[in-house]
Design a protein around this nucleic acid. Sequence first.
DNA 1: ATGTCGGAATTATTCCGA
Length: 255
Amino acid sequence: MRIATWNVNGLRSRLDFVLHWLRDRQPDVVGLQELKLTDEQFPHEVFEAEGYRAAVYGQKAWNGVAILSRDEVEVTQRGLPGEEEFGSRLITAKVAGLSFTTVYCPNGKHLGHDDYPRKLSWFDTLANHLRAAHDPSQPVVVGGDFNICPAPIDSWREAPGEIFHTAEERQRFSALLDWGLVDAFRHLQPQTQAFSWWDYRGGAFHKKQGLRIDFLLASAPALERIQSTEIDRDYRKKKDGLTPSDHAPVIAELG
DNA sequence: ATGTCGGAATTATTCCGA
């Protein structure tokens, strides 16, 4: 079984590109972020024709998350309780023997912006929610765009004190791991520098100026099943003239 | 070049967010 997470940066603009990837990579479960559409605008019939059902938590224009699955999806949570006004950023479903959550964590913009302290507090709410609603002794996967570089190796340009790189953000990320999750990619490839996001501007992708901010975090029983992980960098490139997202998919192969 | 995208508001251009 193959699971994945991918910030698609607008599903309406990205639909043909996403279908290209699904046909090529054949994942079984996919968490999608930044749909930028409402539940009503989600193209369920298109995904059904490809063999996927979808659980969706959207909103107009911004944010929005979904879980695609070849098998049944039983939604257990839509939205992070207490943080609803910060946008549609979390959905959880029981799927393929896992509790699978996908998150689009706040960006924070910059340290002087109001969104920065709100970002930190959103992560505190997420950690509390996981403690209250999930059990890391069960197979749990929390995947998505976390908008944090956990360590210097995860950034093309370690920038202490800058957004995505601060000790406060890294502490929030560590708190999720301390609860009982493991960053699957880093666990299996402790020394590999690989990025999942590159700015559209300035040729950042070709200059290798990226960040690793998209993760599949797994509890111990879920991690046991993971045989390999990869960041699908090839899908940060144009395909058949179609524009990619600024994020690459992150994939894990489960036994 | 603060250099590119996606989407909204408003009608081909400007803004916001990332």
